[in-house]
Design a protein around this nucleic acid. Structure first.
Lengths: 215, 215
DNA sequence: GCATCTGTTTGATCTATGTCAAGGAAATCG
DNA sequence: CGATTTCCTTGACATAGATCAAACAGATGC
């Protein structure tokens, strides 16, 4: 049974949890906080390839080295299982594997949505999309649909946003300023965002679909 | 048993198999030929989000509308299962679900590799990466590792390549010409590629890892 | 209260890639 | 066979976003 073999680990904001290529003998799920998966090229160019929110799963059964850097963006608590033990549970409990398949398919959909963003959206659309994604996720925690006026805190630095969106941090900053000037968002301090009209934001994001990354 | 419920469908090159949003009551796997998954924005911008090669799986158990456009790039033969029947088999045969999980995890890795390409690589690196991916896949069919001198046919038009890479078809064309001028690749006609030195190509692709999209 | 540090904003310029346009090459059709 | 169509290449020019550089704002420490 899964309960019997789990243990917890906590990390501080900014800390790298595993480096790509490291041996990784556990799998885990996020309990609280935010972590990112990213890939880095030799010359330092970096791309975030996953955003881990509470309940998200990290690690791959049947592989023993990490494929990505995993970094805690905020203080983070993870619930871990030794990989071997987890694999045993997966074999004896088909339900666990089924749930994992479902989650993996959701992640694949999110990754594909993200590919459209990276490949085809303008910088302004990218920023609007990211803000919409975070607003949706934030609302989902309160079991709501975002609608009308919405407020929340950005859990990412400008640099993290640029890694996410395939932009430079300067461009991220400029586009946030532009969206503010145009009344699409309202910014208090550096991180606190208010969206006066969520539909307007969605329009700016260029999403025809619901854009429902994390719904 | 899966054998009992499968049936085949074939499609011509260029034909769209399903449109995003269509009802899709089957799942399938590619027997021969190549298909693509793509997303399109209202104004026509398009991004390929998946490349389906023989043995790849399409469709999502537990969802009844297609999330992407599926298009046959070459003549295509698919092996199909009614979704309901397939789901029943998945429940009664854990092994099928496990295999599907493994394939989905591989696809997720490929999607993430692709995100690095879309977000951070230059046009030249993108083209080199795509050619390397296709060369690898082609070699894999012959159970080989690509090495030294390699030849094969591009199964994609310039436009399909641009949809894949988040570029315009003109940029694709120019970069292919540039790689040819620089002796990285050799092009006969429009589609036949020879790579005189595979390692050189990998260098141009900017991959630190093995870039092993489809290995 | 002042100095320092980190994260952010803004400005001036540069450049890779997009856009628009024309023409070439190979396949298909009459 | 020439005519048409489709796909590709190449050129000239425009522009979104990158790069380089400076300054600002809010923490933190002394």
């Amino acid at each position: 049974m899964l309960e019997a073999i789990k243990f917890y680990r906590s990390f501080e904001a900014g800390q790298t949890i595993v480096w790509s290529g490291d041996r990784m003998d556990f799998v885990a799920s996020v309990v609280s906080g935010i972590a990112t998966l990213s890939q880095t090229m030799e010359d330092g160019r970096r791309q975030m390839v996953g955003l881990l929110l509470p309940s998200d799963f990290v690690g791959r059964p049947g592989r023993d080295t990490a494929a990505y850097d995993v970094t805690a963006t905020t203080d983070l608590l993870m619930c871990c299982f030794r990989k071997k033990a987890f694999e045993d549970v997966m074999i004896s409990t088909p339900h666990v594997g089924q749930r994992l398949l479902e989650m993996t398919l959701d992640e694949l959909d999110a990754a594909r949505e993200w590919m459209l963003l990276l490949g085809r959206k303008t910088a302004r659309e990218k920023i609007a999309s990211l803000i919409a994604i975070i607003a949706r996720r934030d609302a989902a925690l309160k079991l709501m649909e975002p609608q009308g006026r919405v407020s929340f805190d950005l859990p990412l630095s400008r640099e993290a946003m640029s890694d996410y969106l395939g932009l430079t941090l300067e461009t991220v900053s400029r586009q946030i300023s532009a969206l503010r000037r145009d009344g699409v968002i309202d910014v208090k301090g550096k991180r606190q965002i208010t969206i006066p009209d969520f539909d307007r934001l969605i329009e700016e994001a260029g999403d025809d679909s619901d854009g429902g990354f994390l719904t």
